[in-house]
Nucleic acid binder design. Structure first.
Lengths: 115, 115
DNA sequence: TGACTATATAACTATATGGTTATATAGTGC
DNA sequence: GCACTATATAACCATATAGTTATATAGTCA
């Protein structure tokens, strides 16, 4: 990272920003076991159709998911599973190091190792 | 990540959010070769003192950096070097997969492997 | 064609936040 | 105490964005 210039930093920041939203993480989470269409993702995530569609559009813009229309449905899938490595790393860091408060610690130590 | 609940997702999202800002990445970048005080970081980053101080406060809240006062100076250092793994992963992903535009590709392939 | 379903988008609101300027706080040395 | 330096914070503005509602678009099937 040492030689990254301004423009590159902005790109990296934007990438992190795409992941910095609970609903988008939820969607990515739901896509772990394979592609799903918008209706399915809407139901799983508990959001509204419009909102999920917006998030999916954003995720697709950052190439985090791939879009494929089939009939009237649009299926989305993870573009690169290495995105989950990021989440694992973050969960690990939070679980191990950031858990100053006990209740937060519990959230992660109990659940983050199950993938 | 599969079993993460709402609260955990929010925490992960917040963590990503802490990294989703060019100036903060710049500061973290500047801390790669060891601790620095606020004045140094202000100069390196090119921001204002108040702004850098705000970013540092936020980074400290998320335990991304550690704070240590010595005299009138306050020194900050990376709390856990594994944060750079995240950046590496992201740089790799952007460089390899997200580089739809050639000019963006160049930003990363030329510079991101130098750490 | 028309009814129906699935998805995307536009317009809007409310909230969060990055940056700035000015000021407060705190340590050092006289 | 006073001057000086370093850092943090408060108040403010401008912008970005998550979510909502309503509507548009597009595919399917009768």
């Amino acid at each position: 990272m040492s030689a990254l210039n301004e423009q590159a930093l902005e790109y990296v920041a934007k990438y992190f920003k795409a992941l910095a939203e609970p609903m988008r993480l939820k969607v990515l989470n739901a896509l772990q076991d394979g592609e799903k269409n918008v209706s399915q993702l809407t139901q799983i995530s508990g959001g509204t159709q419009a909102n999920i569609s917006k998030h999916l559009t954003l995720l697709a813009q950052y190439n985090l998911v791939k879009r494929e229309s089939r009939g009237t449905n649009v299926y989305y899938k993870i573009a690169d599973p290495s995105v989950y490595e990021l989440c694992e790393l973050v969960c690990g860091q939070i679980g191990n190091r950031m858990a100053l408060e006990e209740d937060i610690k519990k959230l992660f130590t109990a659940t983050s190792q199950t993938d």
